[in-house]
Simulated scan of single mutants.
Amino acid sequence: MTLDPSNLLVGDRPEGFRSGFACFVGRPNAGKSTLTNALVGEKIAIASSKPQTTRHAIRGVVNRPDAQLVLIDTPGLHKPRTLLGERLNDLVRDTWTEVDIIGVCLPANQRIGPGDTYLVSEIAKLERRPKLVALATKSDLVSDTRLREHLLSITKLEDELGLRFEHIVPCSAVSGEQLDDVEDVLVSLLEEGPAFYPDGQITDEPTETLVAELIREAALEGVREELPHSIMVVVDEMGLREGRPDDKPLLDIFASLVVERDSQKGIIIGHQGSRLRDLGTRSRQQISALLGTPVHLDLRVKVMKEWQRDPKFLNRLGF
């Protein structure tokens, strides 16, 4: 991923207009993707309680009269066990060096632990350190007393690691608490500059990638702990069905769910295909809502042994 603004500029804006890039980091299930979606105002990143759900650096655009903030939702930094894990960590670290702001998500309903300390200490080592903001996510899940304790813990983390957050903001992407404050704080830290994307554009992700991610999100629901890492979705073919009236379009999507073992294929398909049918229904509804077009979705399940360790397959998927 390259965030070269010279490749993206689309025109001038009023005097004093601010623009720039920010990314959210944090432990798995810290609320990064949910926060990105809430600020953009549309679902562009899938969210799940499963670790390492995010596998791409997805850009979401927040457009305001006075600013354009590009949010980059990245995978969580983790101990890699596969080639895919190593490449995702590289993606995270590359993103850190290219953004203007890093928002560190520290969920208020969890104690600050070694994982948080390690993550922030790694950011502190950067030669060119972006501006840092601490976000006490999931603030709606705790009492005022617990939230105050959490904010004090964040301050102690600053002292422990010898760095300073520009702001510390409690927020909840689910309830909407202080989301405006988060947006205002991030925009206030941007430099003056032109917009990178046209008004109204909320992401530059290819449609096929968004579709594949929505299918994968549906597949993650209710599966065993070891299975989420093994699921990949590939859109094999997508296009409007020929011969349909203009006022009754139908988008045909043919996609493959790739897993690593035959036993996993059985889990995805379910008893007499029940899980796969349910998965297809849920993902089709999400895709249709995203694209505003009725969808016919054809899903197949394929086994590709150890695909997470296959460099050729990972290269083809853009990892």
Rank of each mutant, 00 (worst) to 15 (best):
G280F: 09
R148V: 15
P294N: 10
W96D: 10
W307I: 07
D159E: 14
M238I: 12
L210M: 15
A212T: 01
N29V: 09
E160S: 11
G31T: 09
P249D: 04
E98D: 12
D236M: 05
T155L: 15
A173H: 09
T155V: 11
R148E: 13
L39Y: 09
A47I: 15
V10H: 04
M232N: 10
P206F: 04
Q110T: 13
F313C: 02
T53R: 11
L279F: 03
V303D: 05
L83Q: 10
V10S: 04
Q201E: 13
I46Y: 02
S48H: 06
R13N: 12
D199C: 05
V25W: 07
E149V: 03
S175H: 03
S283E: 03
P130H: 01
L214D: 03
I253W: 10
K32T: 03
W307T: 06
P245T: 06
S188G: 00
P294R: 12
L91F: 07
R277T: 09
Q110E: 14
G266K: 08
G31Y: 10
T209V: 15
I253E: 09
E98S: 10
D140K: 01
M1P: 09
T137D: 06
E192G: 07
I154D: 00
N109V: 01
R148A: 14
P114A: 11
Q68I: 10
T2S: 15
T207F: 01
V233W: 04
E160P: 00
G41D: 06
I101K: 06
F196S: 07
L297F: 06
E208R: 14
L220H: 10
E183S: 13
D159K: 13
G193W: 07
P14Q: 08
L151R: 02
K248T: 11
T82R: 08
A57C: 14
E15D: 14
N7R: 13
E213K: 00
P198G: 08
G222I: 05
E98F: 01
A67I: 02
G266R: 08
G113E: 13
L69V: 11
G20L: 09
T2M: 12
F24K: 04
R55P: 00
P80A: 10
H271C: 04
E213D: 14
P206I: 03
A38E: 05
K156H: 14
D144H: 11
D90S: 12
I287M: 04
G16C: 07
G243S: 08
L314Y: 07
V142D: 01
R111T: 13
R284W: 07
V234R: 12
